[in-house]
Design a protein around this nucleic acid. Sequence first.
RNA 1: GUGGCUGUAGCUCAGUUGGUUAGAGCGUCGGAUUGUGGUUCCGAAGGCCGUGGGUUCGAGACCCAUCAGCCACCCCA
Length: 435
Amino acid sequence: MALSKQPYKGARDFYPSDKRLQKYMFDIWRQVCERYGYEEYDAPILEPLEIYLAKTGEEIVNEQTYVFEDRGKRKVVIRPEMTPTVSRMVAAQRQELAYPLRWYSIPNLWRYERPQRGRLREHWQLNVDLFGVEGVEAELEMISMADAMFKAFGASSDMYEIRLNSRKLVDEALASYVGLDKQEAHDVAKLIDKKAKMERGKFISAIDGALSSKSRQGGAAEKLLALLDVKNLKKLPAELAKHPSVSEIEALLNMLSNGGIKNARFDIGLMRGFDYYTDIIFEVFDKHPDNNRSMLGGGRYDGLVGLFGVPPVPTVGFGWGDVTLANFLELHRLMPELKPETDAYVALAGDIQAAAAKPVAELRQLGINLAVDFSGRKLGDQLKTASKKSIRYVLVIGESELKTGKYNLKNLQSGKEQSLSLKAVAKTLKEASQQ
RNA sequence: GUGGCUGUAGCUCAGUUGGUUAGAGCGUCGGAUUGUGGUUCCGAAGGCCGUGGGUUCGAGACCCAUCAGCCACCCCA
């Protein structure tokens, strides 16, 4: 019985061409994070079960995560998300750290579930968090960064939309304004989250089902539906317009707009993770008709660090998965043509391996990445190999080159050939690799 | 976890109501007088028809199971 060549279900092999794309995406994430003064951190892929139980229910953890017992009988989880981990790290050094903390990481995360479009069992996710800022400028910075990343990937602002809401505002609206009790509010919030996927009629009857007869008679359903149709902060009913979150969101939208980000809007129907978000939440949606979905999301979660027995730290963060990003880049034709890191492929003409070692070493010392063909095959075959590997240049070394010190450098894209000194070769290749 | 669709060459697929030795394109490899690739031309290799069972004189086609993939649901960091 032959061994299976497939990677583990829901996980991917990264061949060099795949890894190149991943590196491209991660590099842009890193560049933008660092441009905003964020520092990279990392942590073990394994965490004790308990840190997830505090936030999620035991049932969900057991069904949707990889849990196992180690040899010391400890319950261990392969991390399904980074937020508890980073909260743990901040809590552990709460006193020593210099706030505000600007941290980011690109962890691989595992979730035990059935793979489908945009969702695998293993994926990588950019996590950006800002700890220690209470004001709305924290949200502004997060959303500006996310926007800067889209721009850095070559996206234009009509390709995506930023949506904003506030958990506090929604709580207030459902409880005081519509008049729902806790259970009703919870059920209704879940339904609102699914609204986009449902037909309107179905949604209305589902809402009716979630309400008690008392609420229904009080006109809660009508009030709720009218509220959900509000597209603009200014159209909110007077009772809600006074809520402090409203002016916060308004201020945020204004600041974003002043910063040139015009594709952000208020969306009262945005629910996102009821569990630990405490105030403003945001998502970025792909506007492509084939992929109308959330690509990244985040918000304020002021309570998580406090779960570790230290005073809480105000926190805003977001996460962005590599799979949703790749889908976005493909659909919008933003995938760049990526070349290998190798600057030139060295083709040897004749049996001169030993003699060619010297110029090759010299070039490498100058920072040039070279792959040498030892095969002894015909020059044409060596060129073919370089071409297949998508390496841009071939450096030919043979008797005449060694004698004259002038090397034949061929650009495989243009077909252009030049006879150059080693230094000139290095200069040409350096310039080419920086393009 | 639930449901639907799909598994034929490395990839994309064709394969008639079940009927001889299983097909194409692309890719791969070899060649077209030995220091120049991509295009072109010639040639070759490559398949337990996902796996196991069943029906049948006969199965790549039909049935069951199983595994895998895709899609939706559930759930959502």
